[in-house]
Amino acid sequence: MSENILVIGGGPAGLNAAVMLSELGVNVALVERDSFLGGNPKKFKYKFLFPDMQPADNVIGELIKRAESGGNIKVYYSSEVSDFKENGKKFDAVIKSASGSETKTFDSVIVATGFEHFDPARDAKYSYQLFDDVIDIKDLERMMGENNFVRPSNGKPPKKVAFILCVGSRDRHVGNQYCSRVCCTVSVKQAIEMREHFPDCEAYIFYMDIRTYGFFEDLYWKAMEEHDVQIVKGRIAEITSGPDNTVVCKGEDTLLRGPFEIPFDMVVLASGMEGGPQSPEISSKLGIELDEHGFLKPENVTLSPFKSNKPGVFLAGACTGPKAISDSITEGAAAAMNAYTYAVKNR
């Protein structure tokens, strides 16, 4: 008899976990709240992934294909775990979907519920939603994905674009003190794409620190040295309406120590990652810990970042904190290995 393992969340981490378990011969129940697999990258139609600019479909599409064609994976679309109980070393879960509820016993569980993009509308100073030409990175990703990269206000190509880093991150005011890790890299990636698309459109990045860690740094160098993307040190304090249908970014140039108010055709807010409402929900439902940042808390952040505090329940991907897609995929595999070991041991 083969093992039964529950994977909650069909994003990069959950997909990879499910695929790996399936290859081991495990029966996988993959519970996805949306009507499609692929998580945020699919939902917001990410076009190219950093660091090598490969089409997102090469990665996400491939994972979905493997999951959908894997014989041992049962995907529950538009569904959720509505009830969850421990049953000795095993777990009884009720999976609720449009077609009704199903109760099953699982040997172990992988939580891969992912993250939510910070909603920049929550930080009024950025005037997101107020000005059409203020968008955020997920909007830009979608616009690029749909090949519709123009100024939302008038449909014309922009001549001057600002990228604003650390929106909703590293900001006690909005309640998020952590760094979202990928927004810097995503922003330089988008600036490059933009410059390739509109060579005569100027790109400026307003930053406090640029955190393109590891080899992502290559993209940052490329943005500056090959695409003349200009970085300006200073966080933007407010965005107001400017002359000729522009939006004005007001900030302090901390390197020259002086105020600036620069009009732009378009502003892209690098909104960060949050645990989202699903994190506290899954935390209370499964009885696993939530950290002070609103993400799920690993048992030991260094030694076992893929284990929850509850034996048999494992964590993977951005549900434990902001991370790049590649890291999520890696964690999916790590969690799969651990969930499998647990299941086999307690058979």
Binding site: Q129, L130, S241
Partner: peptide, 17 residues
């Protein structure tokens, strides 16, 4: 553009910090 701004509506639900 400037005249329309005060009238911009939002479906945004305030979330407490």
């Amino acid at each position: 553009n400037r005249l329309g701004l005060a009238n911009v509506k939002s479906d945004y639900i305030h979330t407490a910090g």
